[in-house]
Every structure is written in structure tokens, then in C-alpha cells.
């Protein structure tokens, strides 16, 4: 049954693909077999991450990117992540509000997902869902992270191209440098360029970039956009495509491996925490006379051997 669901999804059956993503997001036991069939079919899509502070304009930019990629004849997948409420587990997933123009375009598949407790800007399932879109043959898969504003390193390691979105004024904020945001951007976007102080922010960022060590030989451009009026979007897509070209070969292989590593690591973590039930842990702590390090030894030797 799973085999046929996967086959239908890869063949372009939207309902099957959507249900497969549901299994993956719910970590339904069947998803293991499904993803085992999906991953060998991945590696074709250009995985683009978009990150940046809440409200910076990530979704609006994604909307304009979809339009431009479609005009260029490419198919697009979007994984849009919003936070789950830590108190109720519920979520309002609102990124699609800005992407409403593409609801009926069959060349575009948008999926909204909640963090479900995962920290770092993605969700446990986000990269699996991106992999399904890759296997479905989408040319570009855009991942819009939660606007955490700090810990976006996760997306930087798994996206082929990582776009960091800021707005005028943010360049003045020394916190932005501390957060390691300069190191992770392949492309910097100063959105809301219709606002005061944009040139100052661009200059500040360019100066800071010069002081940031980069290993790859790629110099991240700092671009201005007005997502609400599409200004600067052609240049942004130009940079995305140049970065794709630049990364062909070694860099792309590194990123692809990082994605496979990320997937494997996620599954390992899930399996370990499934075995580490609250009951198991509290028993081990009691058995070790309230010594957490001893408790881990006990658990490790009995459960995870």
C-alpha cells in the first residue's frame, strides 16, 4: 500500500503526495518505508532556504520567487514552516496568505507545516517533505523557515542556497552579527527597500561581510528588494541561479550529503527518544541513586546496546 502511495506521489498524484507528506509530518510508522523509497529519487531539485526575522517579508518574497521561476518555465515546491504553540500544540499556518496567486497553478505545490516542538527554524519533517517534492520532480524547492532571527544554522547546512532576509535598520543591530547570520547567508536580501535607511543597511552589511571569513570562494551579494512591488526580484533570482551554477560539482555534493546526514540523524534521534520513555528514565535515575550520569550508563547498556 505504501509502495503504491509513493509511486502515485512520484507520478504527480497530488492527493497521494499530500497524504504522504501527512504520514511523514505525523511520523506515522509507515513513513520509514515511504522515505526509504523516496530518498533514492532525490538530488535533482535546487533546494533554496529563506530565513530571517519574523515579518521581514519571507513569504512575500517567496511569492515573487515562485512567480519568476514559473515564468522561467520551472516547477516549484514550497515548504512553509510556522511555529506551533508550545502550550497547546496548535498552530496558525499563515504563510500561504502571501502566496494565494499560485493556489491553482499545477506547477506549484505548497505545503504549510508547524514546528511541533522542533527548535532551529525547521520541523522534524521539513526536509523529508522537501525530499518528496524533489522526488516529484520539482525544479526548485523553497523552504521558508520560522522567523527565529537567531538559530538559522540548520537551514544553512541543508539548503543548496541560503537566503537571509533583513529589513532596513537591522544592520545597526550588533546582535545580528553575534547570531552568526553573516556566516550562513549565500545571498543577503534587504527587503522593504521602500523604507528609510536601506542604503545605510546595505553598506553596513557589505562592510561586515568583508570581515567575515568564507571558505567557499563565493562572495555573498547584498541585494535590495521590495517584495510587495516585485522590485529587485529578477536580480535575486539571477543571484540564486548564479549560486546554483557556482555550487555545481563539489559544493552541491556536500549539501546533498548534508541532507542525507540530517535525515539519518533525525531518525536516530527519534528512535532513541522513543526508547527513552519517561518511565525508563525515572527508573534508571532511581536505580542509580539519583545520579544522572550513572542513569545514562544503565540506560545505554540496557536499551541502546
Amino acid at each position: 500500500m505504501i509502495t503504491s502511495l509513493v509511486a502515485r506521489a512520484i507520478d504527480g498524484d497530488i492527493r497521494a503526495a499530500a497524504r504522504l507528506m501527512r504520514l511523514v509530518d505525523d511520523r506515522d510508522p509507515a513513513h520509514n518505508e515511504a522515505m526509504g523509497l523516496i530518498y533514492p529519487r532525490t538530488g535533482r531539485a535546487h533546494i533554496v532556504g529563506i530565513t530571517g526575522a519574523p515579518g521581514a517579508g519571507k513569504s512575500t518574497l517567496t511569492d515573487t520567487l515562485i512567480a519568476k521561476f514559473r515564468k522561467d518555465g520551472k516547477t516549484v515546491g514550497v515548504v512553509a514552516i510556522d511555529p506551533s504553540s508550545p502550550f497547546t500544540g496548535g498552530a496558525i499556518l499563515g504563510d500561504r496568505i502571501r502566496m494565494a496567486d499560485h493556489a491553482l497553478d499545477e506547477g506549484v505545490f505548497i505545503r504549510s507545516i508547524a514546528t511541533r516542538g522542533h527548535l532551529g527554524g525547521l520541523s522534524v519533517s521539513a526536509m523529508d517533505i522537501a525530499a518528496i517534492m524533489d522526488a516529484m520532480g520539482k525544479d526548485v524547492v523553497i523552504i521558508e523557515t520560522v522567523g527565529v532571527g537567531q538559530d538559522e544554522v540548520e537551514i544553512a547546512s541543508v539548503a543548496d542556497t541560503c537566503i537571509v532576509v533583513t529589513v532596513p535598520g537591522m544592520g545597526d543591530d550588533i546582535q545580528a552579527i553575534k547570531a552568526g547570520i553573516l556566516e550562513i547567508a549565500d545571498i543577503f536580501v534587504v527587503n522593504k527597500a521602500d523604507r528609510d535607511g536601506v542604503d545605510r543597511t546595505v553598506k553596513d552589511l557589505e562592510m561586515m561581510m568583508e570581515l567575515t571569513a568564507r571558505r567557499s570562494g563565493w562572495n555573498p551579494p547584498v541585494l535590495k528588494t521590495i517584495a510587495t512591488s516585485v522590485a529587485g526580484v529578477d536580480e535575486l533570482v539571477g543571484s540564486i541561479n548564479s549560486h546554483l551554477e557556482f555550487g555545481k560539482g563539489e559544493l552541491r555534493e556536500i549539501k546533498r550529503n548534508a541532507r542525507l546526514f540530517h535525515a539519518a540523524q533525525g531518525v536516530i534521534k527519534e528512535r532513541i527518544s522513543a526508547k527513552l520513555s519517561y518511565g525508563n528514565l525515572s527508573k534508571a535515575i532511581a536505580d542509580s541513586e539519583n545520579n544522572p550520569y550513572k542513569a545514562v550508563e544503565i540506560l545505554w547498556n540496557t536499551l541502546l546496546r
Binding site: 506551533s84 504553540s85 497547546t88 500544540g89 496548535g90 498552530a91 496558525i92 499556518l93 499563515g94 500561504r96 496568505i97 494565494a100 493556489a103 491553482l104 504549510s112 508547524a114
Partner: peptide
């Protein structure tokens, strides 16, 4: 709905039945 633990996809105004 969110406060009741549900995941809500909200798409904004002026949606056609097809969309």
C-alpha cells in the same frame, strides 16, 4: 482552533472555491 491544539491553515481573504 489553535488554542484547542489544532493546526490551522489560514489563507486570507477573497479565496475562490477552486482555490
Amino acid at each position: 482552533l489553535r488554542d484547542a491544539g489544532i493546526e490551522v491553515i489560514y489563507t486570507g481573504l477573497r479565496q475562490t472555491p477552486e482555490a
